[in-house]
């Protein structure tokens, strides 16, 4: 069980490294997919309340394209790949060759399935690196894509956590293209939200005290 009082700087450092390894692998996958160099920001690990959580991805009402999946196994949790509207449209264009607007009819099945598949590949890459690093079995669910208000989307990942407390620990990593001409610095954002029960297992497998 998680108690915010128990969290020490070393725990946040460990989680940051966890995010770094996962997102590093995902960025490599994306870079191969787009044939482009992808940069990673150092993940930020934060303990935040639900109000902050809701506005994490740029604001409660900000329209985002999000791939969501649940992780089951010994260290359960929720995972999101969040793309801002322009980023999602740019990615859909580079994957399908069609220009789309994600909130109108031009966002067709092809674009949706391309984005969902990309979410699937990236989240899979993230989790498999994590699983290798921690030697914890993690089974991702089939990912699901939604385009809607960020607040409404992220609340779907808070259900487990909200039964235990009023805070979530989020491992937040930004990816970006290293292209000088690119005006949008970020191409996507990962959130990993371990369930409260998962922390003990994660820390234990990495040899960090947790009591």
């Amino acid at each position: 069980m998680m108690d915010v009082q128990q969290i020490k700087p070393i725990h946040l450092d460990v989680l940051q490294e966890v995010g770094n390894i996962g997102a590093g692998n995902a960025a490599t996958a994306l870079s191969q997919l787009l044939n482009q160099k992808i940069d990673l920001n150092v993940p930020s690990v934060r303990i935040i309340d639900f109000q902050e959580m809701q506005s994490l991805a740029g604001g409660e009402e900000k329209v985002v394209a999000a791939t969501f999946l649940r992780v089951s196994g010994e260290a359960p949790g929720s995972m999101f790949l969040i793309l801002q509207k322009e980023e999602a449209e740019e990615l859909a264009y580079s994957l399908t060759g069609n220009k789309v607007n994600i909130i109108d009819d031009s966002f067709d099945e092809l674009a949706a399935s391309a984005l969902n598949e990309m979410g699937n590949i990236l989240a899979g890459a993230y989790l498999s690196a994590l699983s290798d690093f921690t030697s914890i079995q993690m089974q991702p669910s089939v990912p699901s894509l939604a385009i809607d208000m960020a607040g409404a989307i992220i609340s779907a990942g808070l259900i487990e956590i909200s039964q235990v407390g009023d805070y979530a620990i989020v491992i937040d990593t930004l990816m970006g293209e290293t292209d000088d001409t690119s005006s949008t610095p970020a191409t996507g954002q990962f959130f990993l939200l371990p369930d409260p029960d998962a922390f003990e297992r994660i820390f234990q497998s990495l040899g960090v005290d947790w009591s």
Binding site: E60, D148, G151, S155
Partner: peptide, 8 residues
């Protein structure tokens, strides 16, 4: 007002 209701 309240914003971003999903399953809530």
């Amino acid at each position: 007002r309240t914003s971003g209701l999903g399953s809530c």
